[in-house]
Simulated scan of single mutants.
Amino acid sequence: MTVRDRIEEAAKRAFSEFGYKGTTMDQIARLAGVSKGAIYLHFPSKEALFHHMLRGVIAQVRDAFESAQVEGDDYFRNLERGLRALMKFRADHAMLSKLVQEVRQFGTAEARAGLQQLEAAILDYLARHLQRGMDLGVVRPCRADLVAFVLFRAYTSVLRDFRPEEGELSEGALYELFTGLFVDGLRLRPGEGRASNRTFLEER
């Protein structure tokens, strides 16, 4: 493992345990077993190191979505499966969970900006995935950025905030919800053509 690798591993641990505000370059140096000067050879500041770590997390989020795709399966099943994978990754990732907690408790500007950067990347990725669906002729013409936002916020609310007495929703129940609320409006029907009548979701 190179010095840079050790620094990145130490930074991941520090940000996950202490958040952005509670992490110092001295802590990262101790965890990595290097001098603070060695860190500055690779990263000019804590902020630069933090944003470098965020870029890595964003790449992992995209990988989580892609690895949930099943070749040959229905586009919308893959989309819903990918949304669940995104939510699970975000909920299970220690650094992201700590940043969410930090924003709620202290309102740390850097932590909030980092989470906003992550969300913007997720929304951009979802919008491009929806655009691919339109290009393939399976998604009706729509404003991909708006639909991506609605899908992301709806799944975030359901998986984070909805707590039914009978326990967590099953994968089947989530897909039924997704189908009932979104697929019927998004799926391009046979004979409809790509230049179908505009809807409230379509770009104007």
Rank of each mutant, 00 (worst) to 15 (best):
M87R: 12
M53K: 03
P44F: 09
H93S: 03
L86H: 02
G82K: 02
L96W: 00
N78W: 00
G82V: 10
G72V: 05
H42P: 06
V103R: 07
M87Y: 06
G72P: 03
K88P: 03
M87G: 10
S97N: 07
V57P: 00
R84F: 04
E80N: 15
F65Y: 15
G72N: 06
E102I: 07
L54W: 05
D74S: 12
F50G: 09
N78H: 06
D63G: 09
H42N: 15
G72D: 01
P44S: 14
P44V: 13
E66I: 08
R62P: 00
F43E: 00
L54Y: 02
H52R: 11
S67Y: 00
M87N: 13
R90F: 04
K46T: 11
G56P: 03
H42E: 14
A68T: 12
Q101Y: 06
E66Q: 08
V57T: 13
R55Q: 13
F43L: 05
K88E: 10
A59L: 13
L86C: 09
H51W: 14
L96H: 01
R77H: 14
F50S: 06
G72W: 01
H52W: 07
E47L: 06
M53Y: 08
D92I: 09
K46E: 08
V103G: 00
V70R: 14
E102V: 09
A91L: 12
F43S: 01
E47Y: 05
L99Y: 04
D74H: 08
A48M: 01
Q101K: 14
L96E: 00
V100L: 07
Q60G: 04
L79Y: 05
H52V: 05
M53S: 13
F43N: 01
H93D: 11
S97R: 14
Q69A: 10
N78K: 06
R62A: 14
K88H: 13
